[in-house]
């Protein structure tokens, strides 16, 4: 085992055990946002997985986006994404973030999140249940821990 390999392992171990999350609402109806807040509170308690909601994108590893992207919010979303240090991951929460949802065709809506920034995890639902959001976060962490294994599972399943 090379020295670089050991450093990488330690880095992954640290990353998986404490993902810091920044949340950005790009024009959502609040439904997903309150469910994201709910996963931080005692019943769902995302801190079990080391998840911490962070205010500044410069300190965060994971960007959680909700809502369709409005024309006003597009530049801000890009700026928030660019401020995050590498490696960064994006979770799109809710039907609107995935496809535009009910807001498809509204004049001020550009579309979904992955038209603007690359997305790693999609969590469907209007809004998704807190359990589903937790599941999405845990899947992302599982992928970080063992990318090859997870990809084989996805291809097989």
């Amino acid at each position: 085992m090379t020295w670089q390999h050991v450093v990488d392992d330690i880095r992954t171990w640290a990353r998986v055990n404490s993902p810091w999350v920044v949340h950005f609402n790009t024009g959502s109806c609040n439904g997903c946002d309150i469910e994201i807040l709910a996963i931080l509170t005692p019943r769902y308690d995302a801190e079990r997985f080391g998840v911490k909601l962070e205010g500044s994108p410069r300190h965060a590893d994971v960007l959680i986006c909700t809502g369709p992207v409005t024309r006003q919010a597009r530049d801000r979303l890009l700026r928030v994404y660019e401020q995050m240090p590498e490696p960064k991951f994006v979770i799109a929460v809710g039907s609107c973030a995935i496809s535009g949802g009910v807001f498809q065709g509204c004049y001020n809506v550009i579309g979904h999140i992955d038209e603007v920034i690359p997305v790693d995890v999609y969590i469907p639902g209007c809004p998704p249940r807190p359990e589903a959001i937790l599941d999405g976060v845990v899947k992302l962490l599982g992928h970080l821990k063992n990318p090859v294994l997870e990809e084989t599972i996805q291809e097989a399943g």
Binding site: G27, P68, Q72, A73, R76, F103, G105, C106, Y107, N108
Partner: peptide
Amino acid sequence: GYAHRGIEKATEG
């Protein structure tokens, strides 16, 4: 206006 989606107009369609 960051969350302005244009719902009032969308209702007309």
